[in-house]
């Protein structure tokens, strides 16, 4: 019997403000792109059905606010993630340098059971800009960083032109599935046979 909980894969996209997290998600899920910059507030997800080895999975892709002031409630949604996508803009050195912080922050907050082997995928976005002339982070440099962090798969994409987006998410889905980040198995202390209603309601009856 295929376990229901295994058919849903949770992916978190992180990265600095303006690197194209929302655009990557929109390109992958809706095949749409807008050049306009619109900040994301809080966390927001879209889902997409993916087929893998004759099985259907629902990919739950969480897009996040890159600007800290729009993340007022914290990051409880990291919990239970199966894969984390780190995005930077190849035309911004700072966004690349911050990948370290995003990765550390994720590992601390999500506290996966096996942080060493938790699947990350790195995406260098906006390779289309200025025909690649304004690029400041070389592919070599990015790959070196990925290698140093335990061979993180690396993709260079253009969310605008849809280059490599599909491939990147294929990899993301595959890694998320492989990670098998099992949810902690819950077993109740006692098994009620009667009708146990939770009587810890508090004041208001709504």
């Amino acid at each position: 019997m295929p376990s229901r909980r295994r058919t849903l894969l949770k992916v978190i996209i992180l990265g600095d403000s303006g690197v194209g997290k929302t655009s990557l998600m929109n390109q992958y899920v809706n095949k749409k792109f807008s050049n306009q910059y619109k900040a994301t507030i809080g966390a927001d997800f879209l889902t997409k059905e993916v087929q893998f080895e004759d099985r259907l999975f629902t990919l739950q892709i969480w897009d996040t606010a890159g600007q800290e002031r729009f993340q007022s409630l914290g990051v409880a949604f990291y919990r239970g993630a199966d894969c984390c996508v780190l995005v930077y803009d190849v035309n911004s050195m700072k966004s690349f340098e911050n990948l370290n912080n995003w990765r550390d922050e994720f590992l601390i907050q999500a506290s996966p059971s096996d942080p060493e082997n938790f699947p990350f995928v790195v995406i260098g976005n906006k390779i289309d800009i200025d025909g690649g002339n304004s690029r400041v982070v070389s592919e070599k440099k990015a790959r070196a960083w990925c290698a140093s962090k335990g061979n993180i798969p690396y993709f260079e994409t253009s969310a605008k032109e849809g280059v490599n987006v599909e491939e990147a998410f294929q990899c993301i889905a595959k890694d998320a599935l492989k990670s098998g980040e099992e949810e902690e198995l819950y077993l109740p202390d006692t098994i009620d046979v009667g009708n146990s209603s939770q009587q810890r309601s508090t004041g208001c009856e709504c």
């Binding site: 909980r5 058919t7 849903l8 629902t58 409630l73 914290g74 409880a76 919990r79 239970g80 208001c204």
Partner: peptide
């Protein structure tokens, strides 16, 4: 469990997210 009034928004969000994940399975 979400009917509690005893949690700050941060903590309530944690509880909410857990319920949220379960509801995805119910939805399926």
């Amino acid at each position: 469990e979400l009917r509690t009034s005893k949690l700050s928004p941060h903590k309530y969000y944690e509880l909410y997210m857990r319920a949220f994940d379960q509801l995805r399975k119910l939805e399926m």
